[in-house]
Amino acid sequence: MSQPLPYRTALIVGAGSGISASVARALSGLGVRVGLAARNIDKLAPLASETGAECFAVDAADPDAVARLFTDFDRRIGEPDLVIYNASGRTRGPIAELDPDAVRRAIEVSAFGAFLVVQQAARRMLPLGHGAILLTGATAGIKGFALSASFAMGKFALRGLAQSAARELAPKGIHVAHFVIDGGVRSEAYPDPVARPDSTLDPDAIAQSYIDILRQPRSAWSWELELRPWTETF
Score class of each variant (00 low, 15 high):
residue 31 G to C: 10
residue 34 V to F: 03
residue 34 V to I: 08
residue 36 L to A: 00
residue 36 L to E: 01
residue 38 A to W: 04
residue 38 A to T: 04
residue 39 R to Y: 06
residue 40 N to Q: 01
residue 42 D to H: 02
residue 42 D to C: 07
residue 43 K to G: 08
residue 46 P to D: 05
residue 47 L to G: 04
residue 48 A to I: 06
residue 48 A to K: 01
residue 51 T to Q: 05
residue 52 G to Q: 04
residue 52 G to P: 03
residue 53 A to L: 06
residue 54 E to Y: 13
residue 56 F to H: 03
residue 56 F to G: 04
residue 57 A to K: 02
residue 57 A to V: 09
residue 59 D to F: 04
residue 60 A to K: 03
residue 60 A to R: 03
residue 62 D to L: 10
residue 63 P to E: 08
residue 63 P to K: 09
residue 64 D to K: 09
residue 66 V to N: 12
residue 67 A to D: 13
residue 67 A to G: 14
residue 67 A to L: 06
residue 68 R to M: 11
residue 68 R to D: 11
residue 68 R to K: 06
residue 71 T to P: 02
residue 71 T to W: 04
residue 72 D to E: 06
residue 74 D to Q: 15
residue 75 R to H: 11
residue 75 R to D: 15
residue 75 R to V: 11
residue 75 R to P: 07
residue 77 I to G: 03
residue 77 I to F: 02
residue 78 G to A: 10
residue 79 E to G: 09
residue 82 L to T: 03
residue 83 V to I: 01
residue 83 V to E: 05
residue 87 A to K: 01
residue 87 A to G: 04
residue 88 S to D: 00
residue 88 S to Y: 07
residue 89 G to D: 02
residue 89 G to N: 04
residue 89 G to Y: 00
residue 90 R to L: 10
residue 90 R to G: 02
residue 91 T to R: 12
residue 91 T to L: 08
residue 92 R to C: 00
residue 92 R to S: 13
residue 95 I to W: 09
residue 95 I to L: 14
residue 100 P to V: 12
residue 100 P to F: 11
residue 105 R to L: 06
residue 105 R to C: 11
residue 105 R to A: 12
residue 105 R to G: 03
residue 106 A to M: 08
residue 107 I to R: 06
residue 109 V to E: 07
residue 109 V to S: 08
residue 110 S to L: 02
residue 111 A to E: 15
residue 111 A to I: 13
residue 114 A to H: 06
residue 114 A to F: 09
residue 121 A to N: 05
residue 121 A to M: 10
residue 122 A to V: 09
residue 123 R to P: 08
residue 125 M to S: 09
residue 126 L to F: 14
residue 126 L to A: 10
residue 127 P to Q: 09
residue 127 P to L: 15
residue 128 L to T: 14
residue 128 L to W: 15
residue 128 L to K: 14
residue 130 H to Q: 11
residue 130 H to G: 12
residue 131 G to R: 09
residue 133 I to G: 01
residue 134 L to W: 05
residue 134 L to P: 04
residue 134 L to M: 15
residue 137 G to T: 03
